[in-house]
Design a protein around this nucleic acid. Structure first.
Lengths: 339, 339
DNA sequence: CTGAAAGCGCTAACAG
DNA sequence: CTGTTAGCGCTTTCAG
């Protein structure tokens, strides 16, 4: 039999004060005399009382819960981000309700509706796009939304990502400086803004140098698809360098090149990724890649979200944080390249 | 200005029924005539009404929230488990509130108290141990707890893990069958029951065969520590086989052996891990390892937890699910070994 | 500063 | 099956 729940009224009786006094002692912004507070605290400890945050949420309208939508956890960038986000929010007194969503629009909408049912104070959507219908409803409900690692056409939506266009450009410049002539690209899921921007920046820089893309494949952010795309790309006229839209795919590409095609990286072909996840630094891969500054991205995401929750509405903020190219051994290093 | 919240009363008025009628239509187990239900549904859709699950939780005492405590997400087994757990619970109408906890007892206690504040219906503790004080409080509050991938001495606690003792034994038998004579072990964090059991099973089987452990290091479930342990272990009299307590560490060990010590795996030394995370199957590592059956572990964890929540208390359940040894190329394969 | 009283949005008896 | 009524545990006016 579950033991009784201890309520503020129980504490009040034991402490010999009113129930509202107890409430005030446990409410951050409230006023209570030192003496009352002490009596209440003592009684509460004795009974093992803790405020019911759900009841508090109902009456105050603030749940201090943040809904986090996330699509896939297999790209290692996300667990890392999830961990950092949760920690950052926890430190600031918020808690995270996680929702997994497949990347179909209807599924995401369904998930966001569920989130809304919890009266969350805010929503972080990691790598998924909200329908404009839904984002309107969030706006109407006064619930701020910040997109993490995904931009969206809707200019009313706040979003934090790395500067994917600049990142793509950096990779192109690096490969060009390395003297590569036949440059290939393996794309991620084409519905993703990150994918589009990385490719756009990459192509723009190639273009500017008067170099055409030698080959293009689609890896869909999946290992298996990337493997297939690699095999296909190298079946005909093999490129001498490949930019892969994220590290998760780049690893699969490297494995395919080495083990299925018997090629040497970087001697036969240079490979560059994007994200700088932990694996990229492993000596086996030693992957040259663009770093997504996860710490800063998380910090900014949390700041924006909480400022919207706690302050007056400041309008949408869109941040694209610049990340450096981390030069390692998976791609030929241009003569005299300044790291 | 945030749009007004739509309450069941608004819907009731529009539909021309009582507020409790609205409630009943949206309460799974309740009775309402087809006609009423239709009117209510129509009015609700028109207004965009959705029940406030927090208010429901306050009055019904059931939040349909599960608190999930997790310590580290860098071992890839956990993101995978987290994803599966969240999905499984979502399918059954529950939602997951995530809490990150460092592995110190006091921190975990603090975290669990926070969880309790949310009136969660149940708690899943992944790879962390609860103080007996806390587990008593959960029990007293009638909140079921299931440990995931961690056993605990407290026999009153439900727990789901793989059969770590049997797993350790399988590895020993495999290495012995492979003719290895100098067998080393790299331990995980020594406070973990998984670590202890894997080692116990491993040593028991070696012992039974009359073979003494050749060397022992501690990797603490960390890449860097594992690297150091490996260097130290191979400085003196190098083993011809190493069992590493999980894949996360085993990968680091392999990298160290290959890149820092210039050894060939498996020709110079066999390596075996535990977990069978995704990386283990990558051709670069091709790691022989004991599979933790994540799907079954998750399914059982959820079943146990929900049966405790929804049914009468059935007493603690402890499950150790057997996982197969996945034979790959990182360890010498004994003559005529039947896969 | 403090207590009394109202009420958050909802579910759960209770009569009808 | 339905409406009425109570009340979940808490915050928040409002007098004092």
């Amino acid at each position: 039999m579950p033991g009784q729940k201890i309520t503020s009224l129980d504490v009040a009786r034991l402490a010999g004060v009113s129930q509202s006094a107890v409430s005030r002692v446990f409410t951050p912004g409230a006023s209570a005399s030192k003496k009352t507070a002490e009596k209440v605290r003592k009684a509460a400890d004795e009974l093992g009382y803790r405020p019911n945050v759900l009841a508090r949420a109902v009456v105050s309208g603030k749940s201090r819960i943040i809904g986090l939508v996330v699509a896939y956890l297999n790209n290692q960038f996300y667990p890392e981000a999830l961990e950092k986000l949760t920690n950052a929010l926890q430190e600031r007194g918020y808690h995270v309700l996680v929702f997994m969503a497949s990347n179909s629009a209807q599924n995401i909408d369904k998930v966001v509706e569920e989130i809304l049912d919890f009266q969350v104070d805010g929503i972080i959507a990691a790598s998924v796009a909200l329908s404009s219908d839904l984002s309107d409803r969030c706006q109407a409900a006064g619930i701020p939304v910040v997109l993490f690692n995904r931009a969206q056409d809707d200019p009313g939506m706040s979003a934090v990502s790395s500067d994917n266009i600049a990142g793509g450009r950096k990779v192109a410049d690096f490969l060009l400086a390395g003297g590569h002539k036949k440059i290939g690209y393996i794309a991620g899921w084409e519905g993703a803004s990150t994918q589009r921007d990385r490719e756009a920046g990459f192509l723009a820089a190639l273009n500017k140098a008067g170099v055409a893309l030698h080959a293009r494949g689609v890896g869909d952010f999946s290992s298996e698809k990337s493997r297939e795309a690699t095999l296909e790309m190298f079946a005909a006229d093999p490129p001498d360098a490949v930019f892969v839209a994220n590290d998760h795919m780049a690893i699969a590409v490297m494995d395919t090149l080495r083990f299925e095609l018997g090629l040497n990286v970087p001697n036969d072909v240079s490979v560059v990724g994007y994200d700088d996840v932990a694996v990229a630094a492993w000596p086996t891969y030693d992957l040259t890649t663009v770093r997504q500054p996860a710490n800063r991205m998380v910090a900014e995401t949390v700041d924006i979200l909480l400022s919207k929750i706690e302050g007056p509405d400041v309008g949408p903020r869109r941040l694209e944080i610049d990340g450096p190219l981390i030069v390692r051994g998976s791609a030929r290093i241009p003569e005299g390249w300044k790291t």
